[in-house]
Design a protein around this nucleic acid. Sequence first.
RNA 1: GGGUGUGUAGCUCAGCGGUAUGAGCACUACGUUGACAUCGUAGGGGUCACAAGUUCGAUCCUUGUCACACCCACCA
Length: 878
Amino acid sequence: MLEKNYNPKDFEEQIYAQWEKDGDFKPDMRSDKDAFAIVIPPPNVTGVLHMGHALDDTLQDILIRYNRMLGKKVLWQPGMDHAGIATQMVVERNLAKEGITRHDLGREKFIETVWKWKEQSGGTICKQLRRLGASCDWSRERFTMDEGLSRAVRKIFVNLYKDGLIYKAKKLVNWDSKFMTAVSDLEVVQKETVGKMYYYKYPIEGEEGQFIHIATTRPETMFGDTAVAVSKENEKLKHLIGKKAIIPIINRAIPIIGDEHADPEKGTGAVKITPAHDFNDFEVGKRHNLPMINILNEDATLNENTPFEGMDTQTARQKTIEKMTELGLMEKIEDHPMVIPYGDRSGVVIEPLMTDQWFVDAPTLAKEAIRVVEEGEMKFVPTTYEKTYFEWMRNIQPWCISRQLWWGHQMPIWYGPDGTIFCEENEEEAQIAANKHYGKNVELTRETDVLDTWFSSGLWAFSTMGWPDKTEFLDTFYPTSVLVTGFDIIFFWVARMMMMSMYMMKKVPFKTCYIHGLVRDEQGRKMSKSKGNTVDPMETIETYGADALRFFMAAMETQGRDINMSENRIAGYRNFATKLWNASRFGEMNSCAPVKGFDETSVSHPVNKWIVAKAKEATRAVTANLNNYRFSDAANDVYQFIWGGFCDWYIEMIKPILYGEDENAKAETRATFGWVLDRILVILHPFMPFITTELWNNTAERSTKLIHAAWPQNENIDTKALNDIDWTIDLISAIRSLRAEMNLPAGAKLTVYMKGAEEKSQQHLRDFATIICSLARLEKIEAYNGEITPDMAQAVFKEAVILLPLKGIVDFSAEKERLRKELEALEKNLEGYARKLGNPSFVERAPAAVVEEEKRRQAEALDKKAKTEEALARIVNL
RNA sequence: GGGUGUGUAGCUCAGCGGUAUGAGCACUACGUUGACAUCGUAGGGGUCACAAGUUCGAUCCUUGUCACACCCACCA
């Protein structure tokens, strides 16, 4: 017995536990059908589920469940990312509460602590994913730092290194002074601010009273200046080229050089060049062989190369200005719009800093990654993201992969006593290589840097399947079928996966990349903790059930567009679930249940034939839309069928049968109801796995679990069966409309006549009289050949007129008004038809079918107009 | 500066070269029947941003304009 009320809390968690216990998420390796695989975008081990995950993982689960029901070998590979910086940050914060820093612990102890933290508090999100209903194969859960994946990281690193695609270089990199590590370009966010532009002057060496005027936003970097540049085209300043300027305060002479980097139109036309602290100046420095003077420590305080050692940049800036003012060299300070780089995680200003770092030769790796997308081996859905991908990949810069952190994959790099580099998969091999190199046993020291987190996630598609070992899983599931992720992850992850996979596997990591948008708040603003406008999916699930949230996500997902949260709408989908629940209860109360051996093609009652055809039609539409990643269309197809077709019409239409005397019809209808409800549970299951399973388990004894039920394919649809009932539905709607128009009490049982109906319509009338009477609240309905009397309300219905005799005097003004309005609309339409059909080039050039259709509509409208006019005339004549 | 996307009902959005039966929510009126008030029935509401072009026909294609959003680059 189903409970009276739909209460998802009663069963959602239990059902999930049962699936997991029964191993229902494991791929069926005996299936003779294709493989279908998705690797989950590994959430950070520190992460908790947010609405973005809820969207991302719902879409994946829909695809996974759908394909599982198609009978394929289906793998949804779950796991988590070790999230270098994020995790180190969390653990350090915990230590800080006890007044300890990681340096107090030392590297080894600290890493131990992180692992301990991971075991105890990491991975909350995996529990939450279960609550959402995600049917991942948890028995295969991986972690980007586990032993297997670490081996994969080392192996691919060594390969890349030996192929010359990983190299060490001293370069200007983005330096995060909070974490004291280099970060990649992607981890830097540019923020617009209004800053200051400082104008001052440097004396010219040997020329008393002569100056070169400089504009800068960072006066404190002057101690690292190694030149002043002016354009060779600059008529006013080019005479200074070759002379020397004196950096005040420290009185160091630097050359004035000619370089096109100095735009005569900007600033003063002269630019101070600080090669060690500015990416543009770095290039200028290289061109002119300028020395590079580093003026910063790793914590972004000024170093011994400046007079302000130990000060932070802001303080040093003030000091510099003070000094310059004292020297009479300050000219003016102006407000200046500028962009300042910040670390996306640390939130501190990123400083360009000269350091030894490791790089991946991304431009080389990008070539294959670009080619396979160009040639369609990997397709973006929607295709527009292809452009974003190409744009980025074609302009890609070397990827800085070294991080001066502790938590992460330590690079498989060892240094010999003289600094020779040995890159091997483990220490023993490095030792062997080194001993061979030196001809004797030497002591090696290991590189302390760890890898950028995205290096290991870049291998996710194949490392999770056992690579570098040759495994059955790798053979079966690689390349994976589709990757589902947000557009903000294209550069970070999609691009890197493409590069790494093409390099190592020579095959794309996934055949399709489905990109979705952001989940925003109700007003369309980005959700953020600082704004306080985040919605916790777990709370939503608590209130409305996981199914409602999932259906919301699916119904809102229209190919890449952002989604605005809407609690109203989620409530609406909870209501939808309630509706289905109650429809099932109706079936239960009326002994409707699936019958073994029931053949839905053999039903004879038109209503049953109709719903069977409708169900198949809906199935076909959902299938097509899922195949094309049209989630909202698929969801709406199911929704419309269940609510608009099954509940609104079918259930209402079978009531007279179920409450009637015809036992054969009753039996057929009960079985049909059972069949249709089963069909509903099947096609709704990917979207709402919980309620469908609960109903499936409670409406019959089952030999198959719903999660493994077969998704129906290639069915024939009896389109003829659709028309009869569609005619009846139209008629019922017309009568209801007329009733409402005449303000008749809903309870009143009426008689309705139909005049001028064709034989076929009359037949329908006889066949469906009971149904029509029941749904339109009539005493009787029948064909009529008599006169239309003044007490009859009229409505034109197709070729006939519906007559509603009313007892006593009736106010016809409302009806008059309605008929007039209808006439107006008809006139307007007719004008359109006449215009079109009167246009010779339309008749000549438009496809014949279109012209015919137009003519048919015109004829229909003319007929209806005539009937409506008659009706109106009769009223007016009263 | 370069790029991408979006402007359709009060709101959030679907959709399509052939009259917008658009969807959900909101709104109005009425609620009868033994699945359901987390509901039912009926109804109101749109010059599909603007302009030009292509076409027999444009909300849909092209170009331009305006508005908005996002991405990338950029601290003189």
